[in-house]
């Protein structure tokens, strides 16, 4: 398997090459890279690829602030049933 075809975001099937190309073309922040490629926006909420999306943006995209988290966290931070989410569960 070639490095360019390597999957970085498993949930949304985003490859390494896609991330690199996007970050270079648009000089992306981590957040913009996420929004353009959907990396980190799948089922796991970016638990697997978050740090890699960050790293690509840092290496080939735009300067990142150290004062705040680059990719926002949003609830639910773990996969949860709708019934539990709505408070109708146990």
């Amino acid at each position: 398997m070639a490095e360019c075809e390597m999957i970085i975001c498993r949930c949304e099937e985003v490859t390494y090459q896609e991330l690199l190309d996007t970050a270079i073309t648009y000089n992306c922040s981590a957040r913009e890279l996420k929004l353009r490629t959907r990396a980190g926006m799948g089922y796991c909420g970016g638990r697997t690829c978050r740090s890699m999306v960050d790293q690509v943006a840092k290496q080939v995209g735009s300067e990142q602030s150290k004062k705040s988290i680059s990719l926002k966290y949003q609830a639910p931070i773990r996969p949860v049933n709708f019934v539990d989410l709505g408070g109708e569960g146990k």
């Binding site: 150290k66 004062k67 966290y73 609830a75 931070i77």
Partner: peptide, 23 residues
């Protein structure tokens, strides 16, 4: 890396510190 996801939900400020492993 430090697992700060719950703290992030509260609006607690974060800082990236290489020597501590991340945010």
């Amino acid at each position: 890396y430090p697992l700060g996801e719950l703290a992030a939900l509260t609006g607690c400020p974060f800082h990236y510190i290489e020597e501590l492993g991340g945010y």
